[in-house]
Design a protein around this nucleic acid. Structure first.
Length: 410
RNA sequence: GUGAACGUAGCUCAGUCGGUAGAGCUCCUGGUUGUGGUCCAGGCGGUCGAGGGUUCGAGUCCCUCCGUUCACCCCA
């Protein structure tokens, strides 16, 4: 058994994942994003400062360990803080802004495993750093929307909200706290603790009594300052211009401390409790928190496992093989090695028998592999300088001179 | 971390009251010379999640642990 919360991905599922990843790569590059690869582990402080000490991730979900030099290191639990760290490290503020980066990497979180929730999962994400233009937010959302649409992910709803800027938040917080204090009796011990750490997260609660309470609570989107409201309005106008449907969700809260202004999430109703298939937002304070010049940023992350689950039954991965070469003669299997090699070198995906099967067994093998074409070269064909080429769908079989075999298969 | 359900062949699952571990699928070999899919016959394949307990006897009952799933929580 692999460790709890981890899994082996076997070829059929790996093909689906490859398809998702290559589609994402094509879309990200069409928007001018370049790939960044950061280490699998970072100094623990990158996440403590970047993600925030009030978050569950930092408080109880990090894989933290000490190396031989007693440094505290942590397996990457999310993708944004490492990218921000690299931005600072490499002085990317001197590049044309925004710097547009995408990544594909494993994330590690110590959580209770469930369908669609693993301790190691693969995430695709982008970060656009160095511009506070709301149209960057729109671009990032549009890219993710493109990805899901291209892949054919169904049952999605885009939720959008704003968490405002520092001024909006400091003006809003007392309003929310006053409301909560007035109804403190509704809250249990856990919820009171959350109220102190990060009261906005109470909007996320599934407790019916709390939901009811929060439905009437003051919402930050309704108390944005002038700048934040203008930003939010322009993001919405951009989405409208692109015809991207979304719902205004004032209760949308994301579990990282670094978010400011725009936050969004794509929920999939095919996924049960783990319904968030991708999400992100703007984080204008993060780079500074990690020691860089004040630099705005916006990005998203989306989980490959959850996309795969949402796609279940809808994709037909392409055929993995083009043809099967059946050589029912043990000596010819050696003699024809160069021929098979040349077919593969020319780009044909070929399988041959590797067990000394009978021709009947080879044909069965070819059939179960689902190849469209089977090439049979026994001593009879070889002596005549030909190959028997059989169409496995129709059963039609014809002879082709060996020196024309490659062209006839292409 | 909390609560619940589940764990039998590679896969999907039966297994009665505690009494010799089963089926279908997959895979392999045949069904007369070198031809697949359908059909027929045969075969391979098990530490019944692990460990302990009760019993003459445990897949079945009890305990502990591990794992999966569902919900909470959180999130991708």
């Amino acid at each position: 058994m692999p460790p709890r919360g981890t899994r082996d991905v076997l070829p059929p599922e790996a093909r689906v994942r490859e398809h998702i990843a290559s589609t994402a790569r094509r879309i990200f590059e069409s928007y001018g994003y370049g790939r960044i690869q950061t280490p699998t582990f970072e100094e623990t402080d990158v996440f403590v400062r970047g993600v925030g000490t009030s978050t569950d991730i930092v408080r109880k979900e990090m894989y933290t360990f000490r190396d031989g030099s007693d440094r505290s290191l942590t397996l990457r639990p999310e993708g944004t803080a490492p990218v921000a760290r690299a931005f600072v490290e490499h002085g990317m503020h001197k590049l044309q802004l925004p710097v547009k980066l995408w990544y594909q990497a494993s994330m590690f979180r110590y959580e209770a495993p469930q369908a669609g929730r693993y301790r190691e999962h693969m995430q695709l994400g982008v970060e656009a750093l160095g511009s506070d233009d709301p149209l960057v937010d729109v671009e990032v959302i549009a890219m993710l929307h493109d990805l899901y649409t291209t892949l054919g992910v169904g049952g999605l709803t885009l939720h959008v909200s704003s968490m405002g800027d520092a001024e909006s938040r400091s003006a809003y917080r007392p309003l929310l706290m006053a409301y909560l204090e007035a109804h403190i009796d509704v809250l249990g011990p856990d919820e009171r603790e959350r109220m102190r750490d990060n009261p906005l997260r109470l909007f996320d609660s599934k407790n019916p009594a709390v939901r009811e309470l929060m439905a009437d609570a003051p919402k930050i989107v309704e108390h944005l300052g002038e700048d934040a409201a203008a930003h939010h309005g322009r993001v919405r106008a951009g989405l409208d211009a692109l015809g991207i449907a979304y719902v205004d969700d004032p209760t949308l809260v994301r579990g990282f401390d670094y978010y400011t202004h725009t936050v969004f999430e794509f929920a999939c109703d095919l996924l049960g409790a783990q319904s968030a298939v991708g999400g992100g937002g703007r984080y204008n304070g993060l780079i500074q928190e990690l020691g860089g010049q004040p630099t705005p940023g916006v990005g998203f992350g989306t989980g490959i496992e959850r996309i795969t689950l949402a796609l279940e039954g809808t994709t037909t991965p392409e055929r993995a093989l083009d043809c099967y070469i059946a050589i029912p003669d043990q000596e010819l299997r050696v003699t024809l090695l160069p021929l098979v090699h040349s077919l593969r070198a020319a780009g044909l995906r070929c399988e041959t028998d590797l067990r000394g099967r009978s021709l009947k067994a080879m044909m069965r093998h070819a059939s179960s592999l689902g190849v469209a074409t089977c090439v049979i070269i026994g001593s009879r064909e070889y002596d005549a300088g030909v190959a028997a080429v059989r169409d496995m769908t129709t059963g039609d079989q014809r002879e082709v001179p060996l020196d024309q075999l490659l062209e006839s298969l292409q």
